[in-house]
Simulated scan of single mutants.
Amino acid sequence: MVDDGRVIIPEVLAFGDQVADALTRTLGPDLVGAYFVGSVALGGYVPGESDIDIAAVSGAALTDSQRRSVASAVVEASAGCPARGVEFTLYRREIAGSPPSGADFEVNANGGPRMPTAVHLDASAEPGFWYVLDRAIAHRSGLAISGPPAREVFADVPRDTLLEAMYRSMAWHRAHEKATLYSVLNACRAWRFAEEDVLGSKLEGAAWARARWPDSGTIDAAVALRRGENAVLDASAVDALLSAVAARLR
C-alpha cells in the first residue's frame, strides 16, 4: 500500500505484503497495520546487503499463544525474504501511540537467508534504545504496507529521549560490536541527528560525517562494507569515532 512517491524495489514490496498477509491470518481484525521502517523507509536500502525492517501494530495486548503464533508466522515468512533477513517488531496500539521509554514490544522476531533466527517475547529483557529509535523512524518516515499512515499510529519521540537512546547505543557498540560497519554508520547517523536534528539513513549519515571527521578512511571503509565490498576497519579508529559521538550526544 506504499503510495507516497518513494520508490521501493518490487521484491521488497512483495515481501512486505507476504508478512502483512501472514499477520492478518494470525491476528485477523486486531491487526492495525504493518510498516516498513529502517533502511527501506529511509532510502538507504542496499539490495543484497541491508535487512528489511518491519514494524506492526495490534489493537490490543496479545496473549502468550498469539505472541508465539505471530513469531512463528514471521519466522516462516522470513525464509522467502529477498534481503539478508527481516527484523520484525510488533507493538500494541496504546504503546505505539505513546512516547517510548523502553522496548515495550509484544513480539520481536528476526530471521532470513543470512540472518540467525531469533525470537524475543519478553520486552523487559531487551535493550530499549533500539526500539526507541525504530519508533521514531516509524513516526517520521514509516511506509504503510497495510493500515493507516504510520505517523497516525506511532507517536513522535522527543529529542532528549532520542539523544539518550543514541548515547546508549554508542556504549552498546563499544562493548559488543566494536569495529563493525554498524558501529561506524550508527555513530555517523547519531552525530548528524545531534547537530542537525535529522534522522536519516545510515548511509546519509556517513556522507554527512565524512566531511566533518578527520579520519574519512574509517567512514569510507564502513560504507564499502555496507555495499558488500572488501574493506578493513581499525578497532582504535572506530572506538575514537564512537567516543567522540558519545560526547556530542551528551
Rank of each mutant, 00 (worst) to 15 (best):
G205F: 05
L225E: 02
E229A: 14
V223P: 04
R210W: 07
S216A: 13
R210K: 14
A209Q: 03
I219T: 07
A209C: 11
E204W: 06
V232E: 15
S216W: 07
G205M: 05
A222S: 03
S216G: 09
S201Q: 11
R227P: 02
G217N: 08
A224Q: 12
G200T: 13
L225D: 04
N230F: 00
A222T: 01
S216E: 15
R227S: 11
G205K: 06
R212G: 07
G200C: 13
G205R: 07
D220V: 02
T218G: 12
S216K: 11
D220I: 02
A231M: 00
G228R: 10
D220T: 08
G200K: 00
G228E: 09
V223G: 03
R227L: 13
L225T: 03
R212E: 11
G200A: 15
G200S: 15
W213T: 07
I219Y: 07
W213Y: 15
K202G: 06
W213K: 03
L203D: 08
N230M: 00
A211S: 12
W208L: 09
D234H: 14
K202F: 02
L225F: 05
E229R: 15
A221L: 05
S216L: 00
L203G: 04
R210P: 01
A224T: 07
D220R: 06
D220F: 01
D220G: 03
N230D: 14
S216Q: 08
L225H: 08
V232Q: 11
D220A: 14
A207N: 01
V223I: 13
A211L: 12
S201N: 00
A211P: 01
L225W: 01
S201E: 01
A206K: 05
K202A: 07
A211G: 15
L233E: 02
E204T: 08
R210V: 03
R210S: 15
D215W: 10
G217F: 07
V232N: 02
A221F: 07
V232P: 00
W213C: 04
W208M: 08
I219Q: 09
T218D: 08
T218S: 01
W208S: 11
A231T: 05
D234F: 04
A209T: 12
A209I: 03
V223F: 08
A206T: 08
R212I: 12
A209K: 06
D220Q: 10
A206D: 09
L203K: 03
A206N: 10
R227T: 05
W213A: 06
D215Y: 12
A221S: 14
A231R: 06
A209F: 02
D234W: 00
T218R: 01
E204G: 11
K202E: 00
G217D: 14
E229F: 06
V223Y: 05
A207V: 12
W213G: 06
A222K: 02
G200Y: 02
N230K: 15
E229Q: 15
I219H: 09
E204Q: 09
P214F: 12
R226V: 01
A211Q: 10
E229G: 13
A231D: 06
A207E: 15
L233W: 11
E229K: 14
A231G: 08
E204M: 09
A224W: 01
A209R: 02
D234A: 13
A206R: 01
G200L: 03
P214G: 13
I219L: 10
D215S: 04
L233I: 10
S201F: 10
W213H: 11
K202I: 05
L225S: 04
L233R: 11
R212Q: 08
L203F: 00
R210F: 02
N230P: 00
A209E: 05
A224C: 02
D234C: 09
